[in-house]
Structures are given as structure tokens and as C-alpha cells.
Design a protein around this nucleic acid. Sequence first.
DNA 1: CTCATGCGTTTAGGATTCTAGACACTGGAG
DNA 2: CTCCAGTGTCTAGAATCCTAAACGCATGAG
Lengths: 182, 182
Amino acid sequence: MSIDVGARLRNVRTTFGLSQRELARRAGVTNGLISLIEQNRVSPSISSLKKVLDGVPMSLAEFFTLDLSAAPQAFFAAQELVELGNPEVSLRLVAAQRPGRLLTVLHERYAAGAATGEEMLAHRGEEAGVVVRGRVELTVGGATRVLGPGEAYYFSSQLPHRFRNVGREACEIISACTPATF
Amino acid sequence: MSIDVGARLRNVRTTFGLSQRELARRAGVTNGLISLIEQNRVSPSISSLKKVLDGVPMSLAEFFTLDLSAAPQAFFAAQELVELGNPEVSLRLVAAQRPGRLLTVLHERYAAGAATGEEMLAHRGEEAGVVVRGRVELTVGGATRVLGPGEAYYFSSQLPHRFRNVGREACEIISACTPATF
DNA sequence: CTCATGCGTTTAGGATTCTAGACACTGGAG
DNA sequence: CTCCAGTGTCTAGAATCCTAAACGCATGAG
């Protein structure tokens, strides 16, 4: 085998921020299998590799087309950003496929009235961003503020936080956080 | 499995004019395995599918990227022709990937002094072509003739035949044969 | 500290793939 | 016709994949 399936899979999995167990759960296989494949201790059957990639999701064609030796891509067209959200809250990730990435940079778009959810978010690291369109209500550790175009934020992600679009139009934010959480 | 690996492999194999046994020999596997894969009776491991495709040859990326549902390609850039020969005798095949192809059309290029080999060729079907550059000596069933640019040939492929470049420059031929032998 | 939760790894054994060889069929030569 | 060489298919058993369950190691909470 000249092609390193294990390294490819590990790259894909970590790029999408999944643990072996989480990917295994989504794919309907065991975490042990993911481990064995990533160590090249087995050469998976097409059917099981297909199942695993469905959990990402990624096609077999994309998987084998990945060029790991290529110099990291520096520029990305809008269409190249990877969509992680839903129709209400669109989260478009910059450089999703870059291995060992330390930053998560997102182009976020909230429909009118949309929010990050009922529960407050809280995770490790720090995050910051700038509003580019519309008006967004940001709550951080008990404090709440409405931000408009050109205004920005920066806080420790451990503080419970939530974004909510309080305007009547869609709003857009460019955000970053570290370490990479997506 | 939504992806039909068996049909894909059978398409690839027949497109290249190989029998299950011949492909198996080149790939270093058994003909039974080729049969089982093509019937989707097994889901091959990546390592064995890789071995099989190496016998064609074709990469895993190409294999999974094949779009069998696409309308047949009608036009081909020079770079899209598939090289089947060697540095001495270059054979560039038109529409190599088209399944169920009845014709083999080649852009052939012979280096000075190069020939199709010591042995005479003989196979089923008929073939024809036109010389576009240089001078080529063509032997068919005991008769020999030197052809130059604009001259052509047509014969039953059962007759033993051989091509030899007798000029001092490279020569080129556009040839066709049916049924598809490559 | 202990405990709980999460991580990747390892292993025995059941499930599947793969090989070696035989089988049946076809087309061409003598 | 027989014989030969080619084709694809099938099957028992060896080899490999895959699962289930455990392990050891971290990190964070109480």
C-alpha cells in the first residue's frame, strides 16, 4: 500500500474536530476499528470505509482525492468555505481541511430572530469577531450588548455566551476562536 | 453500500479489454476475487482494490471519481488521450473510459526505427488508419509497403501484420480497429 | 485526595474477505 | 466429432477484518 489510508483518515477526523468514539458513533462502527484503521493495522473494506466517511460526511472520491502533500492553501473562495450550521444559523469555516489548524475562523450568518440556541455556550479558549451586517445581541457572562456593523467582541470562551439576531434582517459576523473547536 | 463497486470495476476492466484472469494476473490476485467483487458478493478491502486497480492501471481517486451516469464525452483534448505504449511506440487511446466502446481509435507515434515488435500481430476484427507524418513500413499477410503522409491502410486484423518506422524522423498514424482491442 | 468522564489503544473471537482449485460453458482448430 | 484454450462462476478453508470489552492515561469536579 503506497497510499496511507490511516493518516488520511486521522487528518480528516481531527480536521472536523471529532474523537474516534464520536466518529464511530456517527458511522455506526466501533471506536476500535477507527483506531486500527488510523494505525494501518488493518486495510478496511470499502463498505466499512464508506460507513466511516458517511459519519464525517465525505465521499470516497473526495477522500482519495485529498492531496496531503500540497502546500497549505492560503486563499479561499466563498464557495470553498465549509458549511457547518443550518439554514437559520449558517457557519462557514475557513480552511476546514487544514491539518493541525490552531484557529477556527467562521463566516457566520444569522436569520432574523435566530440564535445559537437556548443553552449558553461555554468551552475552552478565547474568541473574537466583528459584525459586518445587521444587529446582533451578544450575552457574555451575565452582560448583554447589541452590536452593529463595525463593532466587535473579544472574550474568554469559558464565560457562558450566546448570540441572537435582534434585527429584522439577517446579520453576518466574522469570528475566530482558538484552539480550533470546529 | 450506495456505490456500486462491482459495476464500476467491470466497466473499467472491459473498457481496457482485459479478462478477469488477465487482470488478476497483472494485479497479483486470483480471478475468483475479481469475479466476486464484480458481483458485489464481497466488499473488497482497500488494499486488494488498490492491487486490482494497479493492474489496469488506475488510482483509487480516479476509480471513485468515475461518473458512470454522465453523458458520454464527445470531445477530447490531446492530454485526455490515454497512453498505452512506451517511449519508442506511443499509443494514445481515444475515449478510453467509454464503457461498451466498439472502436479502438489510437494516435500512434513511432520513434525512428521503432516497430510493433519482432512477432507479427494477429487478432480478430478489422483495422484501418492514415499516416499523418513520416514514413512507415506496413507488412500485412506477406505484402509489404511503405506509406507516407496522407496514405492509408485497411485490412482484416486476422492477417499477420507489423508496423515499422523506416524513416529518419518520428512518424505518426491515426488508427482505428473494431471490436475494441484496447 | 477520589471519582467520573473522556481519550486512544489493545485483544479474543466472530464475521467477512480472499485463495486455490474445480466446474461448466464457449469458440476455434484439427 | 474431439481437443484445446479461453471465458466467468462457485466452494472449502486460510487469512484478514471487525466487534465487544477491557486497559491505561489524561483532565476536570467535588
